[in-house]
């Protein structure tokens, strides 16, 4: 191995993987064994090994979502040993490495569980609910062209930095998966507070939060009870402060907007 740890020995692991042929069919946990897993592998590379084994054996490989494998696209979404993205803090599944596990371990791998995230197949879930929430108002209504010069809107660095921190959400859904209530508040709050903080977001500030929360509820996510699992499991460290901002924005909008509907 080229890794720094020349003593790291290959591992043999038992995997309990959720298998479900499609959206409607029932699923179950199936046990698999993988051998000679290098500690330098990423978790998804370990699953690649499993899938190559399965293909060679003429069996259906395990479906799971992934793409960039560098922790930014938000595609990967595995619930590993009872936690979103597994045991390592601030880490997506694709950046989780097998050195966090030991030889002989049994690893349970499940899809995100939420009524708003139906399972497509095996470990792949449908997170389009998130897109519909953004479509309800997670934008600034500016058409292409005609924007004023970028420096015409000075934004204090502190505000800009805070907005950036909220904007780093990768939309993976770990917050929903980890939440006892399957609530999407952290996700929604990240977008709402990013735009509420910035001057560009002001014109639609009230309608945005009203519509996004309405859509969030319509999708069937649970309500926030301030447990904090979401922020603790968030791979990019979105703060609970955003949820407070969302609550405040919602209350203020409902109390003062001209929307009677």
């Amino acid at each position: 191995m080229a890794g720094s740890n020349p003593n790291a020995k290959p591992m043999n692991l038992t995997l309990n993987v959720w298998r479900q042929p499609n959206r409607t069919a029932p699923g179950k946990i199936v046990e698999y064994h993988v051998k000679d897993i290098s500690p330098d592998m990423s978790f998804l590379e370990m699953l690649d090994v499993l899938n190559e084994d399965l293909l060679h054996a003429g069996q259906d490989p395990v479906a799971f979502d992934h793409d960039c494998r560098e922790g930014i696209c938000g595609s990967c979404d595995l619930f590993i040993n009872g936690r979103s993205h597994g045991p390592e803090k601030g880490t997506t599944t694709c950046q989780l490495h097998m050195r966090k596990f030991s030889d002989g371990d049994t690893i349970t791998i499940e899809p995100w569980r939420a009524s708003a995230f139906p399972v497509n197949k095996d470990l792949s879930v449908d997170r389009s609910a998130f897109d519909r929430i953004i479509q309800a108002g997670g934008y600034v209504s500016v058409n292409t062209g005609g924007a004023p010069d970028g420096n015409e809107i000075p934004i204090p660095k502190e505000i800009s930095d805070r907005a950036f921190e909220a904007a780093t959400c990768i939309s993976c859904g770990a917050c929903v998966a980890a939440c006892k209530n399957a609530s999407a508040m952290l996700f929604v709050s990240a977008k709402v507070s990013q735009l509420a903080l910035l001057p560009q977001g002001q014109p639609e500030r009230k309608t945005r939060v009203e519509n996004m929360v309405a859509q969030m509820d319509k999708e069937g996510f649970g309500a926030c009870s301030n447990i904090g699992s979401c922020a603790a499991e968030c791979p990019v460290g979105i703060s609970l402060e955003n949820i407070a901002i969302l609550n405040r924005e919602f209350l203020a909008a409902k109390a003062t907007s001209n929307n009677l509907a």
Binding site: Y139, V140, V142, T144, G145, A147, P148, D149, G150, N151, I153, P154, I155, P156, K157, S160, D161, A163, F164, A167, Q194, L195, L198, Q200, G201
Partner: peptide
Amino acid sequence: VNIIDQCVAQGVPFAREYGGLL
């Protein structure tokens, strides 16, 4: 140059100086 203007208008949080400019 138009790209930067467009993205700022959309709320893209570009890095800024303490004075508030890009």
